[in-house]
Design a protein around this nucleic acid. Sequence first.
DNA 1: TGACTCATGTAAGAAGTTACATGATTCT
DNA 2: AGAATCATGTAACTTCTTACATGAGTCA
Lengths: 175, 175
Amino acid sequence: MSLRHALLGMLAEGPYTGWGLLKHFEGSLGYAWPALHSQIYPELARLRETGLIEQVGEGPRGSKTYEATAAGREQVWRWLRETEPDRGTRNDPLLRIFFLWLLDDEDAVAWLEREEAYLTGLLAELDAIVAAEPPPASRRERSFRLALELGRATTRARIEWARAARDDVRGWPAV
Amino acid sequence: MSLRHALLGMLAEGPYTGWGLLKHFEGSLGYAWPALHSQIYPELARLRETGLIEQVGEGPRGSKTYEATAAGREQVWRWLRETEPDRGTRNDPLLRIFFLWLLDDEDAVAWLEREEAYLTGLLAELDAIVAAEPPPASRRERSFRLALELGRATTRARIEWARAARDDVRGWPAV
DNA sequence: TGACTCATGTAAGAAGTTACATGATTCT
DNA sequence: AGAATCATGTAACTTCTTACATGAGTCA
């Protein structure tokens, strides 16, 4: 359901090809909602069938350009205003922490250091995006920046946690 | 795949009934990996068929008690040591932020305040769990506490973000 | 006895992943 | 000419959600 609204949201902004949307899902949007071409193309077809988007052009290699219809824009707006965000997020790294105690201390410490390294890399990626973007001018760019800032804030919190957790495990008494 | 390992991880710790596991997924584990009985029972049946868990007893209302076999414990251990955590987390609230600009400023501010209220409630829940639990003594309890601390740390970061984001939107120039 | 909780299952459908399949254009 | 990228689709399978279905024990 969220993929449908993400596509609709992008196409409410302006025209995109399926390929163009795919690239956005490989970049920024993918941090929030990963999607592959095998899911995107059929979903675009469904959205067109239901009249929420329409094809507004054709490009070089059989590419198709879509845009949201009035009904489609209405639908995104309703999604944002009238539906509760899905709070039931699946978080595999968090799940693993519940079972860290099944590893011996060395392996648990190594796991936490790996996690910290990954998160440090992720933060660097997000920082690079901020550095590369011009200061946000449009409302759309301001929203994008807010999303980016949320990613940076939670990633920083996770890095600090990983360091503290490693030190904590090092202090665990031997069994 | 993660549900399978979560069940295996719980049953590596000691015996549980399907119902008992379900209660854990409704509580703490559910913050990391939500699962309903309609998914848990069939998965337990599959784990038993593949010899990763075994039934070790029967209770009052046709309840069945399971425990991980040696092969099952080996499997969780491998999952933790040898597989990369799935980083492709879906995050509906984050996705919506990319499209906040489609709302007018008042609605965007209201959305952010709702989000802050939800997160404040969540933090209170997590704080209550910490307050209710005795200081962690076993390795298992220490792991559990680490998971809880990660939840608290990211929730605090998101609350601060929501406040800053609200103030930011209030400063957006009129269109 | 009636309501509630405990306890387990199945079935249909939606969403997501992996693999298969094809062809056009651009660049070297 | 060959490789890389652009561009779209389908099919099989796994995972997850929603709904259906049943029965035992407990408590007021």
